[in-house]
Each structure stands twice: as structure tokens, then as C-alpha cells.
Simulated scan of single mutants.
Amino acid sequence: MIKRALLDTSARSDTPEQIIQRRALVAQARSGDFEALLSQSLSVILHPKPQNDPAIREVNVRMGLTVGVDGFARQVEALIPRIDSRASLPAISVPTPVLVGDRDPLTPSDLAEEMVVAIPDAHLVVAPECGHASTLEQPEAVHRALIEWITG
């Protein structure tokens, strides 16, 4: 059986404003200090509590540097042409956890709830004290949710 879990995501396509912001971010990454940009972005994606956690900061920056500017640009550009997939959500016919951080600024809980309502056998999992990087900010909560889902 195919299993799906949706973490920190949205079924919507980008708005024109989001596309402009994404392209500006790529331009900034290409023209400036990429490592500084990665560090600065943590204040946008992380819950306030772990923003100053040196271990979380270090792993996020290290991952970004490993991907590199070109890889980062490809990842961002890959998101831009995403279609709005809300109409296809009711066709998902397997149990689906939809996990979101309680303070995710990029894909807030109302977007997760929208998917849960549309997917017939979905359930919402809200990770406490968590922003957009749930697997790094709250790995125990994510692990617990995934184990409960896998084991039924």
C-alpha cells in the first residue's frame, strides 16, 4: 500500500507575491553572502524558541551550504510552477497525516486544515513550539506521529 504523509506543506500554488519573493531570494543568494542569508532566514522559518539553538542553526546552515547556491536556486524555482492541487486531494484514498508546526509562517495551520478537510482519511497533527522545520525543531513529535501512522 502506498502511504502518504504531508509535512509543512500546502496544496496551493504560489501567489504572484510569493513568486516575486522567491525570485528575490534567489537573486539575493546569488549576489551576496549565501551563508549569511541562510542564517538570517532561520528567523523567518523557525519557531522563536529554537532560533538561537546553536545545534539547530548549525545543521540548517550546513545543509544549505551542502546544497549550495545553485541547488538552492533549483529548489526554489521548482516550487514556483506548482499547480494548485486542492481539487485532487479528495482522490487520496489512504490514511494521511498532515503535520504542521503550531507557528509555521510559510505553511500555517489553516492550510494544513484545508488539506485535512479535503482528504477523506486525513488527520491533523500540530507540532508544539514549532515553525516550518518540524523534523529539526520537533523531531520527537514528528517521529511519534509517523510511528503512530505507520503502525496504525
Rank of each mutant, 00 (worst) to 15 (best):
Q138M: 11
G68R: 11
V61F: 05
I83R: 15
P105L: 06
M115V: 02
S85E: 12
D84M: 03
R22I: 05
L146H: 08
A55M: 10
P16A: 02
I20N: 04
L42N: 04
V142Y: 06
R103M: 15
T96Y: 00
I20W: 00
D70N: 10
R57V: 07
V98P: 01
V116F: 04
L42A: 00
A87N: 14
T66K: 15
E137F: 09
V126N: 07
T9D: 02
A118G: 08
I19E: 14
P128S: 14
Q138N: 14
V117Y: 08
M115A: 10
E17R: 13
Q51A: 12
I92C: 02
P95K: 15
Q28D: 10
F72L: 02
S13V: 04
T151M: 12
V44G: 11
L146Q: 06
V61M: 03
H143E: 14
V69W: 06
E114R: 09
E137H: 02
S85H: 01
F72R: 05
P48C: 02
V142L: 13
T107N: 11
V117R: 15
T9S: 14
D14N: 12
L7R: 06
P95R: 15
Q28Y: 00
A122V: 01
Q75I: 13
V98E: 04
K49Y: 10
R23C: 01
P54A: 07
G64D: 03
A55V: 14
A87D: 15
P120R: 10
P81D: 08
H47F: 07
R62H: 11
P81S: 02
D104V: 08
K49F: 10
M115P: 08
F34Y: 15
S10Y: 05
A112S: 15
A73F: 09
P97H: 02
L38A: 06
D104H: 05
P81V: 09
P128I: 05
V59D: 01
E77I: 03
L65P: 07
A36S: 12
E113G: 13
S109L: 04
A112W: 07
R30M: 03
A122L: 00
A133S: 14
D110N: 15
V26D: 09
G131E: 05
E114D: 14
V76D: 07
